[in-house]
Design a protein around this nucleic acid. Structure first.
Length: 848
RNA sequence: GCCGGGGUGGCGAAACUGGCAGACGCACAGGACUUAAAAUCCUGGGUCCCGAAAGGGACGUGCGGGUUCGAUCCCCGCCCCCGGCACCA
């Protein structure tokens, strides 16, 4: 065999795989399926080692499962719409379509050179009309069911460019192009009613047993359920008006000495009219609203507020309490109004102290009334109610239930559940996205584009200025249409969809990517879905995954899928750092996989990235480590080179039928099967791909040591020397066990280093290729040792070791340990207090 | 503040159900081969102490306690790091 030249192997085998369509699959109900998916890629231009790590993880899983006999779907595609391509168009004039297609072509080449086993015939790009047509189709289905709706919402606005800015285009509060401070504007926008599924999305996180706890926690935080009550406060002197507040602590209501409105609250405008200085009132409220947006970016702001001059009636005490407007009360959360309980809420406390509002303690640990005079911060809020009328003396929890029930009886409130999760705003005033398929008619209102007119294709736009209204609004042929209902002139919606819409269901499309009649054939999805193994960056832990879970339920309720959770197992892979930082072009610390491929070949890179750390962990990139993996592969290469003729020429029967093995041969077989067991469970059950590689390295070390002992006349340490071996191996049993070990090794190596493994497999005389090769089978009989070494602890220290038959009983072990001369020396003259035999593998003796 | 995940050699890490801590690799050191180097192969190493050596002893998984014959692992109390959420009422 020639020396190890991985670059040639990469080319040779990649061509063969493509020619053989080795990774293309079709649904086959007679075989178990495995859907292995990595989060598809945004075609930014170049894949760096960080991206590539994810694809290699998935590829190891896919290749291993294939060898285990599964029908494996392992597709790839492109999350091709998005702002960066449009920004590039504004800056350089290259049309987003052109730059995107170019980037896709380049990145696809990179992935192919890595030997990732994708079913490329299923490739899709979200900017294909054949794909985004189904975004539009689904949007209309959601509109029909009230899951897509329109309302006013605020956007970032650059007054200089006269255009809407995405959050990413706001840099330090200014426009990314001209630096002009960004303003807030209210526009009519489209929303998806994800909140309709808030409860279900939260509750079913418990069913996601194969997801990282971290991700589930993030999702739960994001949905943010809190149980509480809504309570109405009447407005003094205005019987028609009331203020509804949301509170999680209705039991503290006797301590509510004022009410706070967020600046966005509808009553603010009304109270302004009533005030002595309506103009000043409105200005202050407006100032708070603008402040609120800025606070998102800058962090905390000082608590501010002003008195509306109007009072509300606390429905439990009957007392009038002042109504203030406060900058820290959020319009979007709850009812946009809160009952302030300064004695038991830190924010309210600070506010009350600042503006001299009364503080009343209504809960104490011992149930004895207390004064607020000496308090420097809000008091612990769980205990016994005091100064709370008929509820005094009740513990907090009991009071909560009682008071919510009483409020309901009196018709002034009810127990309720509040979510932090908001509806998903999907309108983007951008070009490079899916057009929203809606038409505005003066007669018929909002009319969906009829299904038979889908897709609404993105019109060609030549110039991207980044100024003025959305690019689509500047194309009259696009905007002006006839109303599908009445035929009169009407206007198209010119917003496009958030790109998260594209990525929320692409995993279904892979099951049936060329379907022109429906988003996918439910039968195909029924076979392939849910995704068995999904891997990607933790940065998608919240939005992408929650939107996908939402879409799965929408498709379910439309009757297209039967499951609710689209991803059975989730792996969030850690980032690859260089010089302690995430790789990025701007930092100039990008490790280009192509350079590594040229130097070491795909397999060394793949192996190194898998070996360096567990997949979930962040890793620091080092070139030295990569060289180590290359050395390992070359070591395997030399090992096989040393044995290949012996094995191929040996005419050896099935390893299972090799009998009368000597000690060394038995040990090697044991190691082989122990390694099979470890590698299999490490990959399949734990995705500990790093320890799987370690185990294979151990087997190789063992094989080197074995070769040294066994092969007569060969300078043991120089396996690379060209020596005729076949005649020198006297025992056919030796060839038998070596063959078993080497073949198992090559097969297990195949998911990690497929090119090298294919070549080595072929060199052993196999012409089936690893695509046909199966995963080695673990034989527990072989792995079981005849004898085991049992440590004997005396008072916690290992003092002796016994070699005993593997099937020795615990009683035998105890007897043998006490008979052992070394042990006897330690226990002589002392009394034995206790003897413990653990797992048949250890004896512990306590003496004193 | 709340929630989640961590803390093990010079470095990346391993340790399955509470049972020989540090597998495997990187870097390093020594040796073999070589005129030499590279490559390759072999060997070594947690720390400290005793010993010429073989060997022996003590300590050791962030800190302090506890449970246990036995704790990196379980419990209690801290410290630190990473990630998420956060004037969410």
């Amino acid at each position: 065999m020639p020396d190890y030249h991985p670059q040639q192997l990469d080319r040779k085998w990649q061509q063969r795989w493509t020619a053989a369509r080795a990774f293309e699959v079709a649904a086959d109900p007679s075989r178990p399926k495995y859907y292995c998916l990595e989060m598809f890629a945004y075609p930014s231009g170049h894949a760096h080692v960080g991206h590539v790590r994810n694809y290699i993880i998935g590829d190891v899983m896919a290749r291993m499962k294939r060898m285990r006999g599964y029908n494996v779907l392992h597709p790839f595609g492109w999350d091709a719409f998005g702002l960066p391509a449009e920004n590039a168009a504004i800056k350089s004039g290259i049309h987003p379509e052109a730059s995107t297609r170019g980037n896709i072509a380049h990145m696809k080449g990179q992935l192919q050179r890595l030997g990732i086993s994708y079913a490329w015939e299923r490739e899709l790009a979200t900017c294909d009309p054949e794909y985004y047509k189904w975004n539009q189709w689904l949007f209309i289905r959601m509109f029909e069911r009230g899951l897509a709706y329109r309302r006013r919402s605020s956007v970032n606005w650059c007054p200089s460019c006269q255009t809407v800015l995405a959050n990413e285009q706001v840099v330090d509060g200014g426009c990314w192009r001209c630096g002009t401070p960004v303003e807030t504007r209210e526009l009519e926008q489209w929303f998806f009613r994800i909140t309709a599924y808030a409860d279900e999305l939260l509750d079913s996180t418990t069913a996601l047993t194969a997801w990282p706890e971290k991700v589930l926690t993030m999702q739960r935080n994001w949905i943010g359920r809190s149980e509480g009550a809504r309570v109405k406060f009447a407005v003094e002197g205005d019987p028609a008006t009331s203020i509804e507040v949301f509170t999680t602590r209705i039991d503290t209501i006797f301590g509510s000495t004022f009410v706070l409105l967020g600046p966005e609250h509808p009553l603010v405008a009304k109270f302004a009219e009533r005030s002595v200085d309506p103009e000043g009132f409105r200005k202050q409220a407006q100032a708070f609203r603008l402040q609120d947006r800025a606070a998102r970016i800058s962090g905390d702001i000082e608590k501010q507020g002003f008195d509306t001059g109007v009072r509300a009636i606390n429905p439990f005490t009957g007392e009038p309490v002042p109504i203030w407007v406060a900058n820290f009360v959020l319009g979007e959360y709850g009812t946009g109004a809160v009952m302030a309980v300064p004695a038991h809420d830190q924010r309210d406390f600070e506010f009350a102290r600042k503006f001299g509002l009364p503080i009343r303690v209504v809960i104490t640990p011992d149930g004895k009334p207390a004064s607020a005079a000496a308090m420097t911060e809000a008091a612990d809020a769980y205990g016994i109610l005091v100064d709370s009328g008929q509820y005094s003396g009740l513990p907090s929890e009991a009071a909560q239930k009682q008071m919510a029930a009483d409020a309901a009886t009196r018709g002034i409130g009810e127990g309720t559940i509040q979510f932090r999760l908001k509806d998903w705003g999907i309108s983007r005033q951008r070009y490079w996205g899916t057009p929203i398929p809606m038409i505005y008619c003066d007669t018929d209102g909002i009319v969906p584009v009829p299904d038979d007119q889908l897709p609404v294709v993105l019109p060609a736009v030549k110039e991207f200025t980044g100024r003025g209204s959305s690019p689509l609004a500047q194309v009259p042929e696009f905007v002006n249409v006839k109303c599908p209902t009445c035929g009169r002139p009407a206007r198209r919606e010119t917003d496009t969809m958030d790109t998260f819409v594209d990525s929320s269901w692409y995993f279904y499309r892979f099951a049936d990517p060329r379907n022109g009649k429906q988003p996918f054939d439910p039968a195909a999805v029924k076979y392939w879905l849910p995704v068995d193994f999904y891997s990607g960056g933790v940065e998608h832990a919240i939005l992408h995954l929650i939107y996908s879970r939402f879409f799965a339920r929408v498709f379910r309720d439309l009757g297209y899928v039967e499951h609710s959770e689209p991803f059975t197992q989730l792996l969030t892979q850690g980032m690859v750092l260089k010089d302690g930082a995430v790789m990025s072009k701007s930092k100039g610390n990008v490790v280009d996989p192509d350079a590594m491929l040229q130097k070491y070949g795909a397999d060394a890179l793949r192996l190194y990235v898998m070996f360096v750390a567990p997949p979930e962990k962040e890793v620091e990139w080092t070139d030295a480590g990569l060289e180590g993996s290359f050395r390992f592969l070359a070591r395997v290469w030399r090992l096989v080179d040393h044995w290949d003729e012996t094995i191929a020429g040996g005419g050896i029967q099935d390893p299972g039928s090799c009998t009368s093995l000597n000690t060394a041969e038995k040990a090697l077989r044991r190691k082989t099967h122990d390694t099979i067991r470890r590698v299999t469970t490490d990959i399949e059950q734990h995705q500990h791909l790093n320890t799987a590689v370690s185990a294979m390295m151990e087997l190789v070390n063992e094989l080197y040591a074995f070769s040294e002992h066994t092969v007569t006349g060969v300078p043991s340490r120089r396996l690379d020397e060209d020596v005729e071996h076949a005649g020198q191996v006297e025992r056919s049993e030796t060839i038998c066990v070596v063959r078993e070990a080497v073949e198992a090794l090559i097969r297990m190596l195949a998911p990690f280093a497929p090119h090298t493994a294919e070549e080595l497999w072929e060199s052993l005389g196999h012409d089936d290729g690893l695509a046909a090769a199966t995963w080695p089978v673990f034989d527990p009989e072989v792995a079981r040792a005849d004898e085991i070494v049992v440590p004997v602890q005396i008072n916690g220290k290992v003092r002796s070791r016994l070699t005993v038959p593997a099937d020795a009983s615990e009683t035998d072990l105890e007897r043998r340990a006490l008979e052992d001369s070394v042990v006897a020396g330690y226990i002589e003259g002392k009394t034995i207090k206790k003897v413990v035999v653990a797992k048949g593998r250890l004896v512990s003796i306590v003496v004193g």
